[in-house]
Each structure stands twice: as C-alpha cells, then as structure tokens.
Design a protein around this nucleic acid. Sequence first.
DNA 1: GGCCCGATTGACTGGTCAGTCAGCCAGGCT
DNA 2: AGCCTGGCTGACTGACCAGTCAATCGGGCC
Lengths: 199, 199
Amino acid sequence: MAQATPAVDKRRQILDAAVRVFARQGFHSTRVSDIADEAGVAYGLVYHYFRSKDQMLNELFSERWSLLLATIEETDGDTPPRERMAAVAGFIVDSYRHDPELMKVIIVEVTRAANSFGRTHLPEIRNAYELIAEIVAEGQAQGVFRDDIDANFASLSFYGAIEQLLSGWIFDLIPSGSQDFDRAADLVVETICGGLEPR
Amino acid sequence: MAQATPAVDKRRQILDAAVRVFARQGFHSTRVSDIADEAGVAYGLVYHYFRSKDQMLNELFSERWSLLLATIEETDGDTPPRERMAAVAGFIVDSYRHDPELMKVIIVEVTRAANSFGRTHLPEIRNAYELIAEIVAEGQAQGVFRDDIDANFASLSFYGAIEQLLSGWIFDLIPSGSQDFDRAADLVVETICGGLEPR
DNA sequence: GGCCCGATTGACTGGTCAGTCAGCCAGGCT
DNA sequence: AGCCTGGCTGACTGACCAGTCAATCGGGCC
C-alpha cells in the first residue's frame, strides 16, 4: 500500500469523524473516545495528530472561516455592492448546502459560542464583520445605499440574518429543501438591501 | 428581623449571583461553588433551593423569555405592524440596557446554544419566531408589507439581526453608549421594514 | 427549659474524562 | 538476520466537580 499518504489520510479521517460527532452531540458532550470510535482508530492516535480536543475544533473553524474571508475580499471592488453582498450570502448558504454538519459545528460551537470557545476566534469573526461593513460603506459612498444607517450596524444585521436562517435549518425551525436554499440568499439580500437602498 | 422572607431573599440572592458568574465565566466553566461564593452562601444551600445547576439557568431563561412572549402578544392587533415590530425590538434592547448580564447569559447560553442547553427551550424560542411571523403576515394581509418574502424568513431575519446587535454589544464589537441603545431598535426596524414594505 | 423543624453548613463520594506513556508492530534499510 | 523508525495501541492516572448527607444552628412555641 502507499506508504507516504496513510498518515495524511488518517489525520483527515479523524477530523471528518470529529465533525460528525461534534454535530451530533455538541462539542462539550463528545468524548475524545467517541471521535476515535467514529474514525475507527485507537484513542491514542488522536493525540498523535492533534495536541488537544480543542485544537481539532480550532482547525475545523479556521479552515472554513478563512475561505469565507477570502470570498468577501475577492469580490471585485467594481462589482455593485448589492452583488457583493449576494456573493457573501451565497457562499455561506452554499457552504451549508455542501456540508451542513461542518457549518452546524462552526456556527453552534464557535461563532455563537463567543463566550467559551469562540473567544479565541473573535478577531477572525470581527474581521468578517468589518469586511462586510466596508462593502456597505462603499455602497453608501456610491450613493446606492442610504447613509443614515451605520455601516457596522448594517453589517451585523446582515450577517445576523443569514446566521439565523442557518440556525433555522439546523434546528428544523424552517423547511430546508433545495429550492429553499436557492431562494434564501436572495431573500436575505432583498430584505436587507431593500431597506438600505434610498427610495 | 423579618422571619418569613429571608428564605425568599436567599433564593433570589443565589439566582442573582448565578447571573453574574454565568455572565463572567460562561455556564460550562462555572462551578456551583463559584456561585455559592459569589452569593456569600454555603455550597450546600444552593441545593436546598435548586435541584441542579441546570435548573438555575432554566429558571433565569424562562423568567425573562415569558416576558418577551407576553410583550409580543400584547401589542394590539390594531397597531400598525411596523410599530408592533418596533415594540418587540424595543423590548429586547431595553432588556439588555436594563440588565446586560442577564441578557448575555440568556443569549449566549440558551438562545444561541440550541445544541446543548437551548434544546430544552426550543419550543419557547420557536414560539417567539412564530409570533413575530404572525405580525409580518398581518402586515402582508394589510398590504403594508410585500408578500413575496416569506413571513417565517422575515421573522428569522428580524430576530437574527437584533440578536446579532446584542452580541455585538456583549463582545464589544460595536460601541454601546446609551445613544446607541436609543437608535438601535429603530435602525433594525428601519432596515428590515424598509425592505419589506412595497415601494 | 426543652422540643421541633426548616435553614444552613461543608466535607465527602462517585463518576467522568482529557491527556499520558510504555510499548507493539510492520516495513525499509544495511 | 538484525536494527531502526514512526505510525499506532489502549490501559492508566490525575484532576475536576456535581450532587449528597449527616450534623449544626437558631428561633418559634409549649
């Protein structure tokens, strides 16, 4: 069998198992032994690849969040602000569609747990809010968004609305068929921007 | 000294101490002994008044959440939907202004922890979303809100936006002076309703 | 005084886990 | 063959803490 790769595969295998178990039981009530069992691997091997249980969650979060940050930054400055907001909302919704368990873990255990675990990641989280606020500010400068609503306020409202939608799906508060996903991002943008655009 | 009341006082005293400690350290990392110390009371007394650590958090949440539900329900059906939304937003913002520690605990440990602790309270939480959705639906029926945005979606976006603002205050992501509180509720309503109202 | 009873105390127990560690095994190299 | 290395194993330990309980306190009442 291939000799250089199995180590890498095992690491990923453990991380993937961790996502499933964290999503199912929540971070605090998963034992490291649950992760090892789910991955079909010995208890000690987890500590061969990861320094601690926390590090696994850290890594899962940072991996995905950096993609979000990149997405926000990458949208071209010449693109209309409204489209840039739609790109952000679309990325988040697609992330959920593609891997709901991972997004559940990120939102429930990190983003919405700023008091315990998320504290470590506050700077990264704050960074996303600021980048979104910049998009809003740009829209205000261009005159396509009204400027009597503070950009930081608008940014938080926008992000909060999206995250709440995901929470609704995660906890089965609203239906989550694929056509719901398709419309979701547009609806949020429509709701928020409609209120931001001057009439 | 008064003989019938001290028991009641002690109970309240413990509950108040719990709020402070939960807010400071988070539910999971507060030991029952921390609460007892903060309340200036013996460890065992906590268990004289409460069945468990969980029960304290349950009680804190339900106490406040039932007030929110009452507020949403009480707004008169003849009041314009937009004003009713403003009343809801106002109540939440005022709750925070009046007792930020309690609101921090409720949001961080219950409302945004639906995977662990909030699970127990999902029905109550869902109830609030539904009542808000009814206000939106009423607005749509009256023709003052556009009806191409699903009422449940709008409800989640609205609530999500407010909660995110509180989170912003809680974690010092945005300034929280008293004039910020004054404007916050109006801004959220303005943002969301502006997008909901037909042009 | 003597009894009763609820409030109050805090030492102790039982159970749970995160993280450690001593060693095993397989396959490559000499 | 014999050695070495690093992935891999899982029993074990040390710390932590929720919840228990036997004992004490104090005030009302006879």
